[in-house]
Design a protein around this nucleic acid. Structure first.
Lengths: 351, 351
DNA sequence: GTGAAAGCGCTAACAG
DNA sequence: CTGTTAGCGCTTTCAC
C-alpha cells in the first residue's frame, strides 16, 4: 500500500541505497540523479518509514510523557512547555495519563519502553518511595520528574516547602491567625507533604498552631457537610485557607459561596500552582505560583542533556533542579484586624 | 544494550521462533519450554520491541492527535476522552500541537505519517477549505475531525449554528436587545462562522440587527481601548455579549471588571464550550455547552471503526456526527427590563 | 513442538 | 557517484 524505498528505487531506476542517500545526504549524490529520485519520491508520495529508520539502530527521537491527568491545567501547562521544545528539536511525544493509578503507571512505562523511548518525563504521586522509578534507575532508562519534590531523583520543581512557607507567611502578614490547609484526597503526594511542612513552619514561627491538612474530595459536586462544618462553624473557624493547589481552591471557593460565604470578606483563600486561569477569576486567585511551562521546558532540557550529551553534562547539576516560585497576591486574601477576629461572618452563614 | 529476542533465545537455549511464540501464542508451546523461556525473559528483563513488531507488518496501533493548543482546556478535555479509550484499547497516542499554524499542521501530519499512524484525530481552523485534509483524503489516511463544523468530512461536533442560536435566544428571552458577538482574532474558524450564523439568525428572528463579530485579542493582558469603547460607551452599548468560546469570555470578563463593570449587572455574558471550569467561576459562567470529553470519545470510536472495521461500518453514519449540546444558564446573564435599557451602568464606568 | 529462514523498510559499510 | 549486502528485532511460513 504505502510506497517503500524499494518502490522509489524501482521507479527512479536506481538502487535503494541511492534513494536513501538522496534523502539523508543529498550532497553525496549526483545532482541529476538527485533530481530523478526526488521526482520519483514526489510521484509516489513516498515518506520514509520512521519504523525502518529507528529499527536500523538509529535513535528513536521519541520521548514518553506520563501525567496524572489533563483535567488539572497545571499539567497541561507543563505539557505545553515540553511540546514546544520537542517540536522545535524534532522529537516526538508519546503521551499517557495515569490518574495516579500505580497499575496504569506501570503499564505506561512498560508500553513506552517497548517503544524504545529515549527518555521519560513524568509526574508521580510520591517520587521517593516509588518502586517503578527504582526500576527505571536500575534499567538505566533516563527520566526527569516534574513537580515531584525529591532530592533523590532527577527532578524539576519549585521549593514546595519554602514556597508554601512564604505563602502562609503572607496570610499571616495580613493578620490571619486561624489558617487551615486543605488538600485533595490523594494527599499522599510528596509535594503536598512539603507544602504542609512549609505551612506548619510558618505557623509555628508565628506562634500559631498548625493543623493537619484537611482532606477535600476534589471531584464531588459539593463540599462534604463535615468539611463545610470545619470551615464555617464555631468561634474557631479559620479565616484563611491554604489550598494545596489552585483547582482545589476553585472547588472550595465554589463550596463556600454556595454556603453563602463571601470571598475574601468571610474567608481568605490562597492556592498553589499559579494557573494562568487564576488571574481570570473574580476576584483573581491568590496563589503560590510555580512556573509550570518553564518546569516542562527545564525537564525537557535536562532530559535531553542526558539523552544526548551523556552523563557528564548532567553530573554538574544537582539531581533536583529548583525553579523560582512567586507569590501572586490576587484578591482572594483580605486583611484581618485582629480585634474583631471572632466569627466575623457568623450571621451570614446559612449553609 | 537492551536485550533482544536473540538474547532471550540464547539464554533459554531455544530458537527465537520459540521465544516469539512463547510471547504471542503461549498455548502453542510446550509448558516446560514456556516456563524456561519466561524465566529467561524475566532474567534479562526482556521487553519485545514495538518497532520490530510493527515493522514486521503488524498494525502500529498508533494514533496521531493534532490539536491547536492545550492552553484552552476545551482541547485538553477532548484529549482526556481520547486518551481514556486509547489506553483501554491498547492504542498509543502521538500528540502534536499547532497553534493553528498551517506550517506546523503540515509538519505534524508529515511526522505522524512517517510513523505510520493508523489514523488521525485533529482539529483545524477551517475544515472545508483545508488543503491538507484533501491530501489526507487522497492518500487514504483515515482521520476524524473534532469540533470542526463541516459536512464534507468525517467529524464530530455539536450543531454550532443551532447551539449558538439557542444561546442567543436565551439572551433575548432575558430581555436583551443589544447583543454583540465577540470572537478571537483567529476568528476565521468554521465553528466561529457557524456560531455567528446562529447568532444572526436569533437576532433577526427577534427583529434585532445582528452585528459582525467583534474581534478580541485573546492573549493581550488588557482589552484594547477600541474594543472597550465598543462595549462600554454610548447609548447603544450592548447589554449582553456572546463570546465565541469560554476562555474568551473569561478574558473579556476580566477586562470589563477592570473597567469597573459588574457582571451580570452591567453586562451579561454568554460563552461557548461548556468548560468544566466555568462552573467553578463566580458567578458561574453561562455557556453553550459542548460535551467535549464525549466529542473526543466519539471521534475515537469513529476513527477506530474505520481503522479496524473497514469502510462499511462507517458508511451507515453521516460524515458529520452531531452530538447534543446544552445550555448552562450560569449566573452571568441578568434579566433586563426593557424600560430603562439606556446606558444602565454609564455612571460607573471609570475605565 | 521446535527450528531455519525469509523479509518487513531502512541505513551503513564496502566495493566498484 | 552508485550498487550490493548485511543486518536492526521481530513474526511467520515451512520443514522437520
Amino acid at each position: 500500500m504505502t510506497p517503500t524505498i524499494k518502490d522509489v528505487a524501482a521507479h527512479a531506476g536506481f538502487s535503494i541505497a541511492t534513494v536513501s542517500r538522496a534523502i539523508n545526504a543529498p550532497h553525496t549524490v549526483n545532482p541529476v540523479t538527485l533530481d530523478t529520485v526526488r521526482r520519483s519520491i514526489d510521484a509516489l508520495d513516498f515518506r520514509p518509514s520512521a519504523l525502518g529508520r529507528q529499527l536500523r539502530g538509529e535513535r528513536t527521537r521519541l520521548i514518553g510523557v506520563i501525567l496524572p491527568t489533563l483535567a488539572n491545567p497545571v499539567f497541561a501547562e507543563c505539557l505545553q512547555g515540553i511540546d514546544e521544545l520537542a517540536a522545535a528539536q524534532g522529537y516526538r511525544l508519546m503521551l499517557m495519563t495515569t490518574q495516579y493509578d500505580t497499575e496504569r503507571e506501570r503499564h505506561a512505562i512498560e508500553t513506552l519502553r517497548e517503544h524504545r523511548v529515549e527518555g521519560l518525563i513524568l509526574t508521580v504521586a510520591d517520587a521517593d518511595t516509588h518502586p517503578l522509578l527504582d526500576e527505571l534507575d536500575r534499567a538505566g532508562l533516563l527520566y526527569v520528574l516534574m513537580h515531584n519534590d525529591t532530592v533523590r531523583r532527577p527532578s524539576v520543581s519549585v521549593d514546595n516547602r519554602l514556597a508554601a512557607y512564604e505563602g502562609v507567611r503572607m496570610l499571616i502578614a495580613h493578620g490571619h491567625r486561624r489558617i487551615l490547609m486543605l488538600a485533595g484526597t490523594l494527599a499522599a503526594s510528596d509535594r503536598a507533604r512539603q507544602r504542609h511542612l512549609g505551612y506548619a513552619q510558618a505557623m509555628q514561627q508565628a506562634g500559631l498552631a498548625p493543623a493537619p491538612a484537611l482532606e477535600v474530595d476534589f471531584n464531588a459536586d459539593e463540599l462534604s457537610p463535615s468539611v463545610l462544618a470545619h470551615l464555617t462553624r464555631g468561634a474557631n473557624r479559620p479565616t484563611a485557607l491554604f489550598c494545596s493547589n489552585d483547582l482545589l481552591a476553585m472547588v472550595v471557593m465554589r463550596g463556600l459561596r454556595r454556603a453563602r460565604l463571601q470571598i475574601p470578606r468571610d474567608m481568605s483563600i490562597l492556592g498553589f500552582d499559579g494557573l494562568a486561569m487564576g488571574e481570570l477569576l473574580s476576584p483573581p486567585l491568590a496563589s503560590v505560583c510555580a512556573p509550570n511551562r518553564e518546569i516542562g521546558c527545564a525537564a525537557w532540557q535536562r532530559l535531553l542533556a542526558r539523552v544526548t550529551g551523556g552523563y557528564e553534562t548532567f553530573a554538574e547539576t544537582p539531581l533536583a533542579l529548583t525553579l523560582p516560585h512567586s507569590l501572586r497576591e490576587g484578591a482572594t486574601i483580605a486583611a484581618i484586624s485582629n480585634r474583631n477576629e471572632t466569627t466575623p461572618a457568623r450571621i451570614s452563614v446559612r449553609a
